[in-house]
Design a protein around this nucleic acid. Structure first.
Length: 472
RNA sequence: CGCGGGGUAGAGCAGUCUGGUAGCUCGUUUGGCUCAUAACCAAAAGGUCGUUGGUUCAAAUCCAACCCCCGCAACCA
């Protein structure tokens, strides 16, 4: 049994769960379920990112203790992940004591690549980041997002010497040793890598209190990314435990907006610790609303809870994994969602199960423990292995539609009328077995529905009493 | 001249590398069927393949120029 490790990006606790988080979880979950289905032992991480001054600030505004604030938020997210039916095995909160302790150990291991230096330049308190001279000039000294003038800042920070790793990193990305998907993101990262300066990885405690203290220097606190990125291995027990069974990760799922941290800083940290690089970084796109970015100011934000409540979690998973592009930005619209639900889930699949179950039950068909039903087709596996989830499910759907066509072509109801019992039995048995094979391929995508379908045909065949996908 | 992706039927996309009658899904129209969630199956209509020019017997596909959209750069996955 091969061991596989899948990770999700840990969301920052300054907002509520949104549709983008759901996208990340769904992709990783399909991957994890597929790997388990093909006989691998899978560990699957999820968690929450809870440090940083923005979170502290938010708690201040609300007049609550920071710890209480993140406890509350973290619970919201954990409930949300449960609602998505995500099959994670390991969960990390960056405020977990064991995480903080291990991050400090990681810092110690990186020490040869860390140096202290003075930064002098522009800073935006709103963005919480350093501003280059070029940016300063372009924006006439005023932050376009926060409409506040940049501040002159002089402070000491620790830096990670990225230049120690650039060559190795570039080779690893070019050769595919650390595969970045899709390919156009790989090109972007390679270019970005060349231009990347050393990264500041700490802030003075006077600026940032809510974080993990730098070991042996109480005046500095770790920059949140160092803390957050480490979660992928602290959750496995690093450095206290031997993680070589699980690391390097089989695949790490991230949004395109945070790919740069995962494709440059994170691998640099890993190389600094003498660990291997993740095998694959899967960068997915953003979910748009009518071609536009979802934003509070435009007011076009789609609440994932609303979508799930409308037609259930499997309809949600189905739409996001089949009709939202795995790698690039795509639209969510209610019309498209409803169309997919009615035409594909209810009419194609739901009705197929219903009609076939009814035919089989009426004619006394029984399916034994046929082992072939869980056999996955090579075409399907090939697409899944390449993380082409939406294409894989397109392929499966052709089979769903093919079964409907076969029923029409073979007309089992006529065979029944004509008393051709033997032929009828053969025809229906074959159809049911093929449906169960398709069902196995659907199980990573819509696990709940897949179980229901399996139970309909297990032993005595019982057609669903209520439709799998009811229409209103 | 920053780098990159893209402009193909009403919508979303494939086809472009390796030129040879323009394809898929949804939507629309019509026909068939009755096991089934007014579901299913079949057929039809619908396109100057961003613009202009070039190469070729032949261009969505190769070459050149131009126009338009988007990403890499905004709290956010």
């Amino acid at each position: 049994m091969t061991k596989k490790y899948i990770t999700t990006a840990i969301p920052y606790m300054n907002g509520n769960p949104h549709i983008g988080h759901a996208m990340d979880y769904c992709l990783a979950d399909v991957c994890a379920r597929y790997l388990a289905l093909t006989g691998n032992e899978v560990r699957f991480q999820a968690g929450t990112d809870e440090h940083g001054s923005k979170i502290a600030q938010k708690a201040d505004e609300l007049g609550v203790e920071v710890q209480n604030f993140v406890d509350e938020k973290a619970k919201t997210f954990k409930d949300f992940i449960a609602k998505l039916n995500v099959s994670y095995t390991d969960y990390v909160r960056t405020t977990d004591e064991w995480h903080e302790r291990r991050v400090q150990e990681i810092w110690r291991k990186l020490k040869d690549h860390i140096y202290l230096a003075k930064y002098e330049g522009w800073y935006c308190t709103g963005c919480e980041r350093f501003i280059t001279d070029k940016e300063y000039a372009e924006n006439d000294g005023i932050c376009p997002d926060h409409l506040k003038p940049y501040e002159k800042l002089k402070e000491e920070n620790y830096y990670l010497r990225l230049s120690d790793f650039k060559d190795d990193l570039r080779k690893a990305i070019e050769s595919g040793e650390m595969l970045i998907l899709p390919d156009f993101r790989k090109k972007e990262i390679l270019k970005l890598l060349e231009e990347s300066p050393d990264v500041s990885i700490s802030r003075p405690v006077t600026q940032l209190k809510w974080g993990v203290p730098v070991p042996d220097d109480p005046s500095q606190v770790m920059y949140v990314w160092v803390d957050a990125l480490s979660n992928y291995i602290t959750v496995l027990g690093y450095p206290e435990e031997d993680i070589s069974d699980w690391w390097p990760a089989t695949a790490q799922f991230v949004g395109k907006d945070i790919l740069r941290f995962h494709a440059i800083i994170w691998p640099a940290m890993l190389l600094g610790m003498g660990l291997s690089l993740p095998k694959v970084l899967v960068s997915h796109g953003m979910v748009l609303a009518d071609g536009q970015k979802m934003s509070k100011s435009i007011g076009n934000v789609v609440d994932p809870n609303e979508v799930i409540d409308k037609h259930g979690i499997d309809a949600f998973r189905y739409y996001f994994l089949r009709h939202i592009d795995t790698f690039d930005d795509s639209d969510f619209t209610w019309t498209k969602f409803e169309d997919a639900y009615n035409n594909e889930l209810a009419n194609d699949l739901g009705n197929l199960v219903q009609r076939l179950a009814t035919l089989a039950a009426k004619n006394g068909i029984k399916i034994g423990n046929d082992t072939n039903v869980s056999k996955l087709s090579p075409e399907y596996c090939e697409l899944m292995d390449k993380f082409e989830f939406s294409k894989a499910f397109d392929y499966v759907w052709e089979k769903v539609q093919g079964l409907n066509k076969r029923i029409d072509d073979e007309k089992p109801w006529e065979l029944a009328k004509n008393g051709e019992t033997e032929k009828l039995e053969k025809c229906l048995t074959s159809l049911v077995l093929d449906l169960l094979q398709v069902n196995a391929e659907l199980s990573p995508l819509i696990p709940g529905t897949s179980e229901k379908i399996a139970s309909v045909f297990a032993g005595e065949i019982n057609p669903p009493k209520t439709p799998l996908f009811p229409k209103n």
